[in-house]
Measured scan of single mutants.
Amino acid sequence: MQIFVKTLTGKTITLEVEPSDTIENVKAKIQDKEGIPPDQQRLIFNGKQLEDGRTLSDYNIQKDSTLHLVLR
């Protein structure tokens, strides 16, 4: 499925993911596309910070959902 990740600069990254993917996996995909190390990434969905060990389906993230990427 496709999800979107919006950065603070207003750029939107499109990712191909599975609901069973962990947040860690998603961060690795963002690193592949953008070169941002996962330990600098914080992903936010519906105002909640997403934890590495959880999956997209844990957070009820579905296709065409938009996550927000904050760098630390």
Rank of each mutant, 00 (worst) to 15 (best):
D64K: 07
V17T: 13
V26A: 13
P19L: 13
F45A: 11
H68Q: 04
K63N: 03
K6W: 04
R54L: 10
G53H: 06
L67A: 01
P38T: 08
R42D: 12
E34H: 09
D21T: 10
S65Y: 08
H68S: 14
T14P: 15
T66E: 04
F45L: 06
K48F: 14
P19D: 12
E24M: 03
I44P: 00
Q31K: 13
T66I: 11
T9R: 05
T7F: 15
Y59K: 01
T7I: 06
R54N: 02
T55P: 11
K48N: 13
L71T: 08
Q62I: 14
T55W: 13
K63R: 09
T55Q: 10
T66S: 07
V17L: 07
F4Q: 03
L67R: 01
K63F: 10
V70E: 07
I3P: 00
L71F: 06
Q49T: 14
R72P: 12
L50I: 13
L50A: 14
V5I: 11
I3Y: 00
V5L: 14
I30N: 01
Q31A: 09
G35P: 05
Y59E: 03
G47Q: 13
G47L: 11
I3Q: 00
K11N: 12
D21K: 06
Q40F: 06
N60V: 07
N46Q: 07
L56E: 00
L8N: 13
L50Y: 01
I36R: 04
L8E: 06
M1N: 10
I44Y: 07
Q31T: 06
P38V: 15
D32K: 05
V26W: 01
D58M: 10
K48D: 09
L56M: 06
G53L: 05
Q40L: 12
I23P: 10
P37W: 12
K48R: 07
T55R: 11
G47K: 12
E18G: 10
V26Q: 00
M1L: 13
K33P: 04
D21V: 09
R72W: 06
T14A: 09
P38H: 08
V70P: 01
K11G: 07
F4K: 12
F45E: 02
K63Y: 03
